[in-house]
Design a protein around this nucleic acid. Sequence first.
DNA 1: CTTCTATGTGACCATCTGGTCACATTGGTA
DNA 2: TACCAATGTGACCAGATGGTCACATAGAAG
Lengths: 218, 218
Amino acid sequence: MRGLILPAKRTFYNLPEEKQKKIIDVAVKEFAGQGYQQASINNIIAHLGIAKGSMYQYFDNKENLFLFIFEYGIHLVKGSIRQAENNIRPDHDVFTKIRLFFSSSIEFVKKYPLIFRLYLRTLFENGMPFKQKIIKKIHITSVEYLVPILEEGMRRGEIRADCNTQLIAFMLDASIDRLLQSYLGSHCESSSICAQAPDNLEKDVIKLIEMVKHGIAA
Amino acid sequence: MRGLILPAKRTFYNLPEEKQKKIIDVAVKEFAGQGYQQASINNIIAHLGIAKGSMYQYFDNKENLFLFIFEYGIHLVKGSIRQAENNIRPDHDVFTKIRLFFSSSIEFVKKYPLIFRLYLRTLFENGMPFKQKIIKKIHITSVEYLVPILEEGMRRGEIRADCNTQLIAFMLDASIDRLLQSYLGSHCESSSICAQAPDNLEKDVIKLIEMVKHGIAA
DNA sequence: CTTCTATGTGACCATCTGGTCACATTGGTA
DNA sequence: TACCAATGTGACCAGATGGTCACATAGAAG
């Protein structure tokens, strides 16, 4: 969370932690719900019950507020990944590893749905000068984690050698992403096993992996 | 394209076709690029070189302009689907059918990338009162087309009976959608076989179907 | 009590938005 | 020519936006 250039001012860090947390919560909700451009500082301060001037004493401008919030999201993601890595043992077979990786993703989205929304919003929004930098930070996502796992599986002979690990990772990533999106209802109904019940999510993951494992041809 | 309630006024239809087309083009570009809320009427008229008052003589308001543009997109999609249905013969096996269906999707996105962008933007944008109606119109997409094809394949014994057609359709739809997104570069790089060359797209589709067909397990 | 610094405040600003309307322009009819 | 309906126009409006700044308040130090 600490970097050389911090998007938040000292004043913010001097605030009692409770107030910091409240500001973060409200800002996350606004940015996740409206996206960067559409998010309204006026809205945020109204929800917080503070003056606009105060907000600008904590953050230089809207852009830095967003960067701070996004950084906070990355912070949570990294924690979640670290936790996931503890669960995955090297001696697990590829398919178990994939399942565990998926489970941890699901866990994260269940725990921090707004952060996931923020991430989706960011990917689809235009007109952020700093979008490139942000995307690179997200780049440390599924595909990059999946490919090594798949390649290890192939080396161990659990995956046929004629398969394309990049392609498998791509497909798995697309699937889990959609699964999470439909769970979140971000653009729900449009394409669903409509996994609203949390249990179904895990079951769908297992079925999906089974399918990729054995294929569907008779 | 014709309905009982038309979003465009008579004045618009009285315009010379060339001007109609130019207006549509510019509006599509603006809405696809910025989304509904962020799109600017001022921007559109500036690009068109006409007065704001004229625009409001063609369309009652921003909402109706958007609805008209979206309807236009649906119109193009339907045409594309009709064309696709001509190519798919009943005696093709399931996997060929899927491939052809994918190819026609790719064809569409290549031909009308902005329409696809508009569709993506719409799915991910909040704060449209009419979003529900629009989403239902999109609902006639991949999954609904894929499931019958898959079930027919299962009946014919080309797909194992223990597979879940809903799940297969879901995964295929998610994959093709992502493939198209990364081709479009809408949020590119984030997850890619980075299929920039059009040829690669088709090749990836073939490989992907092969993978789903036979599975990846050794 | 005074002084000083750190923090809180909201009226205010320029800029942009979607939308309106009184007026100008046009082209066809008589 | 005169007339009229259909179009074109851009100054103008109320509202919202991100951002500023002169001032009020607080709390600790002397």
